[in-house]
Simulated assay, not measured.
Amino acid sequence: MRGGPRDRGSGSVLVLAACAALLSVGLGVLGLSSAVLARHRAESAADLAALAGADVLAGRASGAPCERAAAVLRAHGARLVGCAVRGDGSVAVSAAVLPAGPPAALGEAVARARAGQATEAAAVEGSR
């Protein structure tokens, strides 16, 4: 006999504790993945919306820049937080996406993007 009579069933308790720990870690990873996915979706939607607004400013599309940006965000499941047409001919967009599942209680993932005509100063700065 390996252990005394008091040790009977202790292996089952240890296995259950290990399973509970693995389940907790797995749920945490799923929650984190949902939040990261929401951030990536917000970034992509903000980039596309800013480009759509810049197309309006450049005359390649019709409508108002911020209305076009809002339509693109809605199509990508994001919400328009802010939109501004800047004096340098660019459009700045802020977008928000709510994560799925329990991470939604922590709030929305917000991303910002700006797009517009390249200026000579920006081209010189970008070539360095």
Rank of each mutant, 00 (worst) to 15 (best):
L106V: 08
A100F: 03
R60Q: 12
R2W: 02
A61E: 13
S10G: 03
A69E: 11
A95L: 09
S12I: 04
V97A: 05
A113S: 14
R79V: 07
L22S: 06
R6Y: 05
V91K: 06
R114D: 04
R74W: 13
C83D: 05
E125W: 12
H76D: 10
V13F: 01
G89W: 11
L23P: 02
D88L: 02
L32S: 13
A46S: 07
V91R: 11
R79G: 08
E43A: 14
A115I: 04
A78D: 12
L30E: 05
A54W: 08
G11H: 01
A78T: 08
V85H: 02
A105S: 06
A75T: 13
G82Q: 12
A42D: 03
L27T: 11
H40N: 13
L30C: 09
E43D: 15
P5R: 14
R8V: 01
A104M: 03
G26H: 04
V93Q: 07
L23C: 15
R112I: 01
A58F: 09
L30T: 14
M1I: 11
A95C: 01
A75K: 12
V36F: 14
D7Y: 08
A21V: 15
P65Y: 01
G116F: 04
G4A: 02
S90Y: 07
R68V: 10
A64S: 13
G89S: 09
A38Y: 10
A42Q: 00
A96D: 15
S94W: 11
R128E: 09
E43K: 05
D55W: 12
A70E: 10
S34K: 08
A64H: 06
A54Y: 07
A54T: 06
G11W: 02
R114Y: 04
D88R: 02
P65G: 08
S127A: 13
V29I: 09
P99E: 07
A45R: 04
A45W: 03
L30V: 09
R86F: 03
V56C: 02
V29P: 12
L16M: 09
L106E: 00
A18L: 15
G31P: 10
R2Y: 00
L51F: 12
E125T: 01
A111Y: 00
A118F: 01
G82P: 05
A84Y: 00
P103A: 11
D55P: 04
V93R: 05
G26A: 15
L22R: 08
R6M: 01
A38V: 07
G126T: 13
L80G: 11
G87L: 00
R114V: 15
G107E: 07
G31N: 10
V85R: 13
H76G: 14
V124G: 06
D47V: 14
G9T: 01
A69G: 11
T119S: 15
V85C: 12
C66E: 12
S33N: 08
D7A: 10
E125L: 11
A118Q: 13
A54K: 10
